[in-house]
C-alpha cells in the first residue's frame, strides 16, 4: 500500500493527533487492533478503510491518509463498535472528531458528507428536531441528486416518517438552543 517514514510522521502528526484526541476523548494507544469493531460495522465493507484501519493509521501517525478517508464520513454513529469494544473506545466520537477537524479547515474528504452534516445541524438548530422532508429536499437540491431516495417517499409517508411538521417534542426549544450555543462556541462550522 503506502510508504511512510515513521520518524518524520512523528513530528508532523503530533498537532492534528492531539486535537482529534482532545475532541473525541479517544486515546488511540488503547486500541490493540482486535478488529471486533470492523467485523460488526454496517458500513465497513463499503468503506475504503474500516474503522480498525482508521485507528491504526492514527497510531502510526499517518494523519495525511486519515484526512483523505471515506470511513469517518460513512460512519452512522450507530454505536455497535463501541458496544462491543473490549477497550471501550468511542469510535463514533473519533470519526465525528475527524470529520469536524476536516470541516473546520475546509478539507472535508467527502463534500456530500459535509453537506449532509451541515444541513442536518441547520435543521435541528432551526426546529429542535430533525425534519426529514426538509433534510431530504435540501440535501438533494444542494448535491444535485434531485431524485435520490424519492422512490422511498410513499412508504416513508405511510409510516409517518415524513410528517416532521406534525411532530413537536416537548424539549424541542431546549434542543434548538443547545445546538445553537454549541455551534456558536465552535466558531461555526459551515
Amino acid at each position: 500500500m503506502g510508504f511512510c517514514n515513521l520518524s518524520e510522521l512523528e513530528e508532523a502528526a503530533s498537532g492534528p493527533l492531539s486535537e482529534i484526541a482532545a475532541a473525541s476523548g479517544v486515546d488511540v494507544k488503547e486500541c490493540y487492533q482486535c478488529g471486533k469493531c470492523a467485523a460488526g460495522c454496517p458500513v465497513a465493507a463499503s468503506a475504503d478503510v474500516d474503522c480498525r484501519g482508521v485507528i491504526r493509521l492514527l497510531q502510526i501517525g499517518d494523519v495525511d491518509r486519515v484526512l483523505k478517508l471515506q470511513m469517518p464520513w460513512l460512519c452512522l454513529s450507530c454505536g455497535v463498535c463501541l458496544a462491543r469494544c473490549p477497550q471501550n473506545i468511542d469510535l463514533p466520537a473519533l470519526n465525528t472528531a475527524i470529520c469536524r477537524y476536516e470541516m473546520k479547515r475546509g478539507i472535508a474528504a467527502e463534500r456530500e458528507g459535509e453537506a449532509f452534516m451541515n444541513i442536518f445541524l441547520d435543521n435541528v438548530e432551526a426546529k429542535g428536531v430533525s425534519d426529514e422532508t426538509m433534510l431530504a429536499m435540501r440535501y438533494n437540491l444542494q448535491t444535485g441528486h434531485l431524485f435520490q431516495d424519492v422512490a422511498n417517499s410513499p412508504r416513508m409517508l405511510s409510516r409517518g416518517l415524513l410528517s416532521g411538521d406534525g411532530y413537536k417534542p416537548a424539549g424541542a426549544p431546549d434542543v434548538k438552543r443547545m445546538v445553537h450555543d454549541i455551534r456558536k462556541g465552535e466558531g461555526g462550522a459551515e
Binding site: M1, L6, D62
Partner: peptide
C-alpha cells in the same frame, strides 16, 4: 512493514 495498516514503514533510529 506495518502489516496492520499495510504500509511499508521506515524509522530513522
Amino acid at each position: 512493514e506495518d502489516t496492520l495498516s499495510g504500509n511499508v514503514v521506515e524509522v530513522d533510529a
